[in-house]
Design a protein around this nucleic acid. Structure first.
Length: 479
RNA sequence: CGGGGUGUGGCUCAGCUUGGUAGAGCGCCUGGUUUGGGACCAGGAUGCCGCAGGUUCAAAUCCUGUCACCCCGACCA
C-alpha cells in the first residue's frame, strides 16, 4: 500500500515533464512504434489488443440497440466531399488527396476519408425511399486520415482507427433520441469499462462538428489537468439530408427529409486511459479492458516443480475466466516485475518454493502496490474479486482527481487565475456569445468543453462580459 | 505553419571544434552460474555515420542542398 516508488528509471516522471512521460509510457508499454510517415504509428500487439477489447465492448453495446456494421470506401471524390458546405469547410484543411492512379493523373482527385458522412449520405439517398425503410442504424469500424500538423501517438495521429456510426431517422425526435442514446453508451462504457469518469454535455456552436445541428460530448480530465474529448454524438437535423437529397415518402404520401445522427469514438481514448490512470512506473490498465489481467511470475523457476506450479496457476485462472498469462522467460524476477508494471497489468502473482511449501502465493496489485498472501486453493475466488476491487478503486481515484481539480469561478480575474495556475475544469456561467468564448480562448488558451446536462446556476452573469447568463459551461485547456 | 532540437549497429548516445577510413553502454546470439524488485562471468554477431551534391590525396567530421522525426505554440477526434 505504501507509496508507490518509482521503479523504472527509463520513464520520465509525470511531474518533471508530462508530455515526455506520456511518450515514454507509450513506448515502454510497447503500445506503438513510430512509423516512417510522420504522424503514423505501428500499433503493436499490446496496443492493438487494447483496441480489440474496446471494439468488442462497444460493438456489443451498439448491437444491443439495433446497430449493424457496414464498410464504406476509403476514397471520396472531391465533388462528393463538397456537397455540404459547412462540412467541407471544416475538413478541407486537413484532407489527404490522391491525384494519380498508377502513372495517370485522375480526372477527379480523391480524398482519403477524414470521416464518412458524405459517403453514408450518398449511399442513403438511394437506400431510403419509404418510412418503412427507417431507421437505418449503421456503423463502421475503419481508419480515417486527417493531415494534422503536429502529431502525438493516439492523441493526434494522421491516421487513426475509430468507429463511426451513421443513422437515418424519420423524425427529429427519433434522431435526437438516438443521439443521446449513443452518448450515454459512450459515457457508460468509459465509466464502467475504462474507469474514466466523464462529464456529459452539449458543445457550444463554436466547438460543434462541421455540419451538425448539435454536438454532444463526453469530457474527461487527464492527470495533468487537461481535458480530453472522449467521444462525440452529433444530431445533424435534416441539413445533410437536404444537401444530399435523402427523402422518404411518409404514411401520408408526402415527401419528407430524413433526420440523421453520427457518433464516434477513436483510438484517442487509449491516450485517455494512459493519461487518466498511468503513473511513474508506466501504464495502469483497468481490469475490464486489460488484455492480460494477471501475470504469474515463477521465482527460482528452475527449482523442481516451480514452473509446473506456476503454469497450473495460470491455467486455473484462465479456466475461471481470468485473462491470465505465465511469464516463463528466463529474465530475472525483478525484470519481470518492472516490465509487467510498465505494461499496466492489474495483478501480479508470484510463486516460488517458499510459497509452494506454505500452500500460498504472493499477489500484488498494480493500482496501489498492495501485496497480499493468497492461499492457492482460494485463487479462483480471490483473483476475480480483486480485479473488481481494482476496477472500482481506479474509477474512484480518477473521480477523486477530477473533483479535486474542478473549480467554480464567478469573477473573470479569478477564472483566468485558476486556468493559469490550477489545471483542471472550471465551471462558470456564459451568456451564449461567441465573442466571449473567443476572448476566453485568447486570454487563457481554455476552451468551452461542454454545457453539462447537470446545470448549476453559479451566478446570473457571464464570466466574461457580465451580461445576463443562464448557461453553466465547463472550461479547460484540452488535448 | 511558426519556434526549437535531433539524425552514427535494434535502442540511448560519444566521436565532429582541429578531416586519416567507427566507438561505448544497453539489447541480441552461445555456454555456464543465478533467481522474492531491472543478476553475473566468458565468448560472439551486427554500421551505405538520414539522403544528394561539393571541397579534398582522404569526409561521420568542412560546405551547399534536401528529407525525415521529436518537442513547444496556432487548428483538430
Amino acid at each position: 500500500m505504501a507509496d508507490q516508488k518509482k521503479l523504472v528509471e527509463e520513464i520520465t516522471s509525470m511531474k518533471e515533464d508530462f508530455a515526455q512521460w506520456y511518450t515514454d509510457v507509450v513506448k515502454k508499454a510497447e503500445l506503438i512504434d513510430y512509423a516512417s510517415v510522420k504522424g503514423c504509428m505501428v500499433i503493436k500487439p499490446a496496443g492493438y489488443a487494447l483496441w480489440e477489447n474496446i471494439q468488442k465492448e462497444l460493438d456489443k453495446r451498439f448491437k444491443e440497440t439495433g446497430v449493424e456494421n457496414v464498410y464504406m470506401p476509403l476514397f471520396i471524390p472531391e465533388s462528393l466531399l463538397q456537397r455540404e458546405k459547412d462540412h467541407v469547410e471544416g475538413f478541407a484543411p486537413e484532407v489527404a488527396w490522391v491525384t494519380h492512379g498508377g502513372l495517370e493523373p485522375l480526372t477527379e482527385r480523391l480524398c482519403v476519408r477524414p470521416t464518412s458522412e458524405t459517403l453514408f449520405c450518398d449511399f442513403y439517398k438511394d437506400e431510403v425511399h419509404s418510412y418503412r425503410d427507417l431507421p437505418k442504424l449503421y456503423n463502421q469500424w475503419c481508419s480515417v486520415v486527417r493531415w494534422e500538423k503536429t502529431t502525438r501517438p493516439f492523441l493526434r495521429s494522421r491516421e487513426f482507427l475509430w468507429q463511426e456510426g451513421h443513422t437515418v431517422h424519420a423524425t427529429a425526435e427519433d434522431a435526437q433520441e438516438r443521439t443521446i442514446k449513443m452518448l450515454n453508451i459512450y459515457a457508460d462504457f468509459c465509466e464502467q469499462v475504462l474507469a474514466i469518469p466523464v462529464i456529459k454535455g452539449r458543445k457550444t456552436d463554436k466547438e460543434k462538428f462541421a455540419g451538425a445541428e448539435a454536438t454532444y460530448t463526453i469530457e474527461a480530465l487527464m492527470h495533468d489537468g487537461q481535458a480530453l474529448q472522449s467521444g462525440t454524438s452529433h444530431n445533424f437535423g435534416d441539413g445533410f439530408a437536404k444537401a444530399f437529397g435523402i427523402q422518404y415518402t411518409d404514411k401520408d404520401n408526402t415527401m419528407k427529409f430524413c433526420h440523421q445522427t453520427s457518433w464516434g469514438m477513436s483510438t484517442r481514448i487509449i491516450g485517455g486511459i494512459i493519461m487518466v490512470h498511468g503513473d511513474d512506473s508506466g501504464l495502469k490498465l483497468p481490469p475490464r479492458i486489460a488484455p492480460v489481467q494477471a501475470v504469474v511470475i515463477p521465482i527460482q523457476q528452475k527449482k523442481e516443480g516451480v514452473m509446473d506450479c506456476a503454469a497450473s496457476l495460470a491455467d486455473r485462472l484462465k479456466a475461471a475466466g481470468v485473462r491470465a498469462k505465465l511469464d516463463g522467460s528466463d529474465k530475472s524476477p525483478g525484470f519481470k516485475f518492472a516490465e509487467q508494471e510498465m505494461r499496466g497489468i492489474p495483478v501480479r502473482i508470484e510463486i516460488g518454493p517458499k510459497d509452494m511449501e506454505a500452500g500460498k502465493c504472493v499477489v500484488v496489485r498494480r493500482d496501489n502496490g498492495e501485496k497480499i498472501d493468497v492461499a492457492l486453493d482460494a485463487l479462483e475466488k480471490k483473483i476475480p474479486e480483486l480485479l473488481d476491487a481494482i476496477q472500482n478503486n481506479m474509477f474512484e481515484m480518477a473521480l477523486k482527481h477530477r473533483e479535486e481539480h474542478t473549480y467554480k469561478a464567478t469573477e473573470y480575474a479569478e477564472f483566468c487565475d485558476i486556468i493559469e495556475n490550477r489545471p483542471g475544469f472550471v465551471k462558470a456561467m456564459w451568456c451564449g456569445d461567441r465573442a466571449c468564448e473567443d476572448k476566453i480562448k485568447d486570454d487563457t488558451r481554455a476552451t468551452s468543453r461542454c454545457m453539462p446536462f447537470e446545470q448549476e446556476q453559479l451566478s446570473d452573469k457571464c464570466i466574461c462580459c457580465g451580461k445576463p447568463a443562464n448557461k453553466m459551461v465547463y472550461w479547460g485547456r484540452a488535448y
